[in-house]
């Protein structure tokens, strides 16, 4: 509890200072008092507009994330156990991995139009990489004795994959999913900032143009909560699903 209070000290102090500064009247217009932001949030909740934008953003991020993560993990795990698959992906991934996928965004807009398809495509691409790499390494680094002992107990190659490699790689797979989730939100916001007429990124852009800073902060707040909430969900899922593998190794996971 004391630790919690101390941890909250800096953010709370900042918020109070911010509120006072905003109310003095000498602050520039973009410094909006936190209480004003909450009021706007309440108003937007009452008229339902916040749900509309949040819903659209969540939809884009989730669909993109789910598809990208599915294919990334699947390809990564297969490449980890099958040499020909590894040979196919390895050069492509290692050449393009450090390249910011976001640079493709304008091009993808010209290919697919500025609708949702383009946003899905870019999110899927961005999520594919970290999930692929994490599950590839997860599958590759499964301890040899585990595989041997499974073979010794009569498991077929498929059973070894399904019942040893996949569960053993799971902690790494989750690391990849976590990175992918963060990326999907970043790309979601960016692509909505560039071209959209609904969604939280759009809301920020529109608020910026009409100088409605209170709305901008509301959108920022929601985006922050989404990022935080999604990450927490992921961590809870990880802890629930991987009981045996997370025992005694929680500390280093900040």
């Amino acid at each position: 509890m004391i630790r919690f209070l101390r941890g909250a000290a800096v953010p709370v102090a900042l918020l109070i200072a911010w509120e006072i500064y905003a109310r003095t009247g000498i602050a520039p217009r973009y410094v909006v008092a936190p209480t004003e932001v909450v009021k706007t949030l309440w108003a937007m909740t009452l008229n339902g507009s916040i749900f509309k934008h949040t819903g659209r953003s969540i939809e884009r991020a989730t669909v993109g994330f789910a598809v990208g993560a599915f294919f990334g993990t699947l390809a990564g795990l297969t490449a980890g156990v099958l040499k020909p698959v590894e040979n196919f992906y390895d050069p492509i991934i290692s050449l393009t991995y450090p390249v910011p996928k976001i640079a493709l965004l304008p091009l993808i807009f010209t290919w697919f139009g500025i609708g949702d398809t383009a946003k899905f495509v870019i999110i899927i691409m961005a999520v594919f990489y970290p999930t692929f790499i994490a599950s590839f390494y997860g599958a590759k680094s499964v301890e040899r004795v585990l595989i041997w002992s499974a073979r010794n107990m009569g498991a077929s190659r498929w059973q070894v994959f399904r019942r040893v490699v996949v569960p053993a790689a799971m902690p790494q797979v989750f690391n990849g999913l976590r990175v992918g989730l963060a990326l999907s939100l970043i790309i979601m916001v960016t692509s909505e900032l560039i071209a959209a007429n609904e969604g939280l990124g759009y809301l920020i852009g529109a608020a910026q143009e009409s100088l409605r800073f209170d709305i901008m902060y509301v959108a920022l707040l929601i985006i922050g909560l989404l990022g935080f909430g999604a990450d927490r969900l992921m961590r809870i899922a990880r802890r629930k699903l991987l009981v045996g593998q997370t025992l005694g190794s929680e500390a280093g996971n900040g």
Partner: peptide, 21 residues
């Protein structure tokens, strides 16, 4: 104690959204 919570809580937030600000 002062900073660790900011970093571990703030980490998953997409900071690019702050760009307009």
């Amino acid at each position: 104690a002062l900073f660790e919570p900011i970093f571990s809580f703030g980490f998953p937030i997409p900071r690019i959204a702050l760009y307009p600000v």
